[in-house]
């Protein structure tokens, strides 16, 4: 099946981005832990976790909506956006409510997917070549 292959490719790409987002945030968190900044480390990991979940759902929603009737697709698209923004709001609220998470670190964390994409395409690929 050709479509299955293509779907597989998108999933693999999403998985790779999420993997690197989590790996980089965990690495950064360990550096901050080394300097005894526990709140910053926890904030970054929390933000990056939800950023990855959001990005993963973004891709999954496309294939769930494909092939539905128009009314159903509209409703599902709207629901998926609402759900994703609610999911993104969770780490922000947690960061504000609990002092054990640094809020600024959470904000940096929820941009983890975007930051990883940038670094990959603008710094890593031009220097190491296309993979």
């Amino acid at each position: 099946m050709e479509t299955a292959n293509q779907k597989e490719e998108v999933s693999r790409f999403q998985g790779r981005v999420c993997f690197w987002a989590m790996t980089c945030s965990l690495g950064l968190a360990f550096i901050f832990l080394f300097f005894h900044e526990k709140a910053i480390a926890k904030g970054i990991v929390l933000g990056a976790c939800f950023s990855s979940i959001n990005f993963f759902l973004m891709g999954k929603a496309i294939y769930m909506i494909l092939g539905r009737s128009r009314a159903k697709a509209n409703a599902m698209g709207f629901m998926s956006i609402l759900l994703r923004y609610l999911i993104l709001a969770v780490p922000l609220v947690v960061g504000l409510k609990y002092a054990s998470f640094n809020f600024v670190a959470v904000v940096v964390g929820i941009f983890a997917v975007q930051i990883v994409t940038f670094v990959d395409h603008i710094i890593v690929r031009p220097t190491l070549g296309e993979r």
Binding site: T3, N5, Q6, K7, E9, V10, F13, Q14, F55, M58, G59, I62, F111, V113, Q114, T117
Partner: peptide, 18 residues
């Protein structure tokens, strides 16, 4: 080419969404 197109669409949408 749907895999590559959807991949790029997702990257672009992630940036537009920020």
């Amino acid at each position: 080419a749907s895999g590559t197109i959807v991949k790029n669409m997702l990257i672009g949408q992630a940036i537009a969404e920020s």
